[in-house]
Each structure stands twice: as C-alpha cells, then as structure tokens.
Nucleic acid binder design. Sequence first.
RNA 1: GGCCCCAUCGUCUAGCGGUUAGGACAUCGGCCUCUCACGCCGGUAACACGGGUUCGAUUCCCGUUGGGGUCGCCA
Length: 495
Amino acid sequence: MASSKQRVRFAPSPTGYLHIGGARTALFNWLYARKTGGTFILRIEDTDQARSTDESLRAILESMKWLGLDWDEGPEVGGPNGPYKQTERLALYKEFADRMVREGTAYRCYATKEELDTLRKEAEARKQQFFYPHLWRDKTEKDWPADRPYVIRFKTPLSGETTFHDEVFGPITTPHNQIQDFILLRSDGIPLYNFGAVVDDITMGITLVARGRDHIINTAPQVLLYKALGYQLPRIAHLPMMLAPDGKKLSKREGRKYGIPISVTRFHDDDGPLDGYREMGVTPDALLCYLIRFGWSHGDQEEFTRQEMIDLFDFSGASKADGKFDIKKCTAISLKMLKEEKYTPTDEYLRRLGPFLEARGMTPRDDAWMRRALATYRERAQTLVQCAEGFEVYLKPLAALDPALVQKFLTVEKAGWLPQLRDALAAVDPFTRDEIGKAMPAFAEAKALAMKDIGQPTRVALTGKTATPGLDDVMEVLGKAETLARLDQAAALLR
RNA sequence: GGCCCCAUCGUCUAGCGGUUAGGACAUCGGCCUCUCACGCCGGUAACACGGGUUCGAUUCCCGUUGGGGUCGCCA
C-alpha cells in the first residue's frame, strides 16, 4: 500500500438520477477512502451540455447525502483542487491539449462531424467496422486551414498494445489497432470523457480509480494519455456490473418490469416521477449492506454496520463476475437491518418513520408511545413503508368494517361473546400487554372457547384486518378507552 | 462481426489442488402460535462442456459454449 495519502473520486455526470449501480461505485470508493484515512472527492462530469441539468445535479447530491457518503472535496464543500465541475475547468483541458499538440502526441483534426458520419455510414453499408482514417494525423501547422473549427485527437500508436494491471481483474491487454485516434477536445473546447477524466485525475492527484466494468474499455486509451503526458498511473480497479434479473442492463424499463427501484432517491424525468430506494422505505445502511455484498464479500458475512464495512473493505474481496439484482434479498436485508437495534437504533427508526407516517396522513404521537408502538412492528416490517402501513391500525380511526369480514367473523354465532369480552377487558387493570395476555385466555376458558376461536373475531373488531401484531400488544398500544370503544362499535354490528 | 472481460445452487456468494462443495435470499415441509410476521428445525437445489497438467481438479492451462462490455465531437 502506498504510504502517501490515498485520494479517490466518484465522478457522476448529472444527466439523470443517481443509479443504483453508481451508488455501489460511490460506496466502494468512499469505503476505500475512509478505510485508508484518505480523501474522497466528488467530481461532476458535466461535459455533455445537452443532457446535463441542475436538477440532476441536485438529485445526485441529495442521494449521496441520504446514503451518508460524505465527500471531502467537491460541490458545496470546495477543496484545494477545485473547481469540481468539469465545465469550470475548460482552461485546464485546453492547456493540456495544446501541450500535447506541441509535443506531437496529439493533433488538430479539421474533419467535420458530417464528413465522418458519411464515412461511418459507408463503412456500415459495406458491413465494415468504421475506423477513423488518419485524415489529419500527419499534417503540420502549415496545413492548418484558417477559421475552421477543429478537434484535437490523440495520436494513438499504430502498433503494439497496452497492458495495465487491474486490482480486481488482473492484467488486461488491449491491442493499439483497436484504439482509434480518439478526440480529446471537441471543436467547442469541451473535453471528451477520456481526456477530461485523465486531466482531472492527474491534477486532483487521484491515486486509485474504481469504477464500473463498462469502463474497462476506456482504460487503455487513458493509460496512453498518462504516458503521453508523463504522469504516473493511479491504481485501477473495475467492479463487475449490476444487471437486471434477466441479465440485461438495469434500466428504468427493466427496473419497472421487476419492481426494482433504480434510482437512489425520487427523481422526476420526462416520464414523470420515479421512486427510489428512499421512497421504498429502506434505510441507507440497509441499502449499503445489500450493495456491498454485490460483487464483494468478506467470507459469509451478510450484515455490516457502517464501521464494519469500513474496517473490512478491501478490493481483494471483490469478485469479477457480473451479478443480477435480487429485490427480495434486498428487502430481506432491510428487515434484518430494521429489526436490530445494533443496525437501526430506535431513535433513528422513529426519525426515519416520521415522513412515511405523515405521507399517509398520520401524525406521530409522543416519544414513549411511539417507541411502544414501534416495538410491535419492528420484527415484521421489511420497510418503513410497511411499518407506516402497520401504524394505520393505531393512528387512523377505524374505518367501516369490510362486510365480507363481518360476515365471516362478526356474527352472533361466531362472536356473540364480544360484549362480555369487552366487559372482561374493562376490568383489566393495569391495561398492559401482560395483564391482557392473561385476561384473554381466562375469558376464553370461562366461555369454553379456544383462543383461536376468539382471536380473529376480536382482531377484526379491533383493527378491521386479519393480520396484525398480537392482540395483547395491539390493545395496549390502543389503550383501554379506544379498545373498548372499538369493541362496542363492533358489538353493535352483531346479528 | 472485431477487440476486451466473465462463468459454483433460481439469486448473492464461501472455496484460493484433497471438503459429505458451506452460508444467505428465494422455494418446499415442520415447529411455535389468536392472525400475519419474526424465530427455530429440516428438505430440494450448483462447480456450463471438452481436452490437458497432476497421485488427485470446482480450484491451474487450452479450447468450445453461454453471458456481458465496447466499437460517438455520450459518459
């Protein structure tokens, strides 16, 4: 391991929401920085001006904050290597590009996009692979036409190959004849991805680049750029892809098809609002827990606190094979994380639950009551949404009972004892789970009934539902007055 | 199609030459039980195929097949 301070970055382009795969990339970089005591940089690659939007940038920052992946340098926090948006660094790219032209490792190309598109189409028609013909490669300054736009292209070596060592995949070799004379700087002075990323990684002192496997193809050109510029290569790590259950790219369409959120937080685009993991009701720690086990492992461990992730993380634990997203596993992890105080302290649980209650028209009550009520759902709610739905039993007035349920459970024949149960419960004091838990079986026994005979009718009378936490819990949370009132209401329906 | 990469239960994965191939999710039984969950017990379920190397291959090498990535003045 390098002795100097590690510097890593996450470099999204603000052309949409923060994709779940991007979140995984961000997590791995963040973990590496935190583990090594290094610096985590957030850099905005907004060079695609046609697609970049401020709304997208806001959404990405919001998602990063929600995940708790804080950055040491970048938007809002600044830093010594700014600015951190590429469109604010154009002079830098020009300086590097001009230098390369001067040194002969790059050249001006005056071929127009139209011209090249035509050639591309022709090659396509001949079923041949298009390859940039070295139109301007060997021209010199005296050949440059005046007043015509040009791009700057890299002068890729004509033969040989480039090999780099990937921390995850090992050595990867690319023959140079597969690398075109790619464009560094567009005619409008804006850099293309490979060039912008390299110049920034160099000037920001990045020591390790970790990104998705779809970038492996970009690495050889970037290595060539480092060499041409005379800088030392950072360490490089690629992560396997996160795919949809059918092995396709995890797109918005695929996500909908399998009920998988693909955005970290809610995002509005042309098709309307798109809910994310936050809206689905998983906690950031639970999501991170699912993500870290995707393409990485530490033996059989499935649950991690944030600190454990930091302590245990290492690129040697990464795997090479692509994976398919499994939403059921994700919610299963969510349940485990939500259930345990160690992973989700009660205070945090309630704080996160609040907005979900309010979204359903409920108002949280006092802290002690909320804690008591939460205890009845902690072991059964996979998500905060499910928990909030459960709270409707407690916080919403009981709606008119479903006639089908009344027919099934609340007839004189099946629940004629209801008024007497009500009276028996009225005598319970204190009205606690334990006392109720004794009174109910005692009542059943006195009536020569089994608990299972009185359970469901009572449950329906109390909650209008057939599945809820235990009756003793429900009654205690509801309180004696509300419990009796609801039973009275149901008893009136008996016929 | 060219080039690059990958390959253990349905899914995420453990394994780093010798294991009854383990765990988790899912699934199927059972227990618990007032319902639904949780929890507990148990079952089904994988080394893609073919060659090597080796006393011995899931593990190392080659090939085949399958999958993915990429071939833009997108990132």
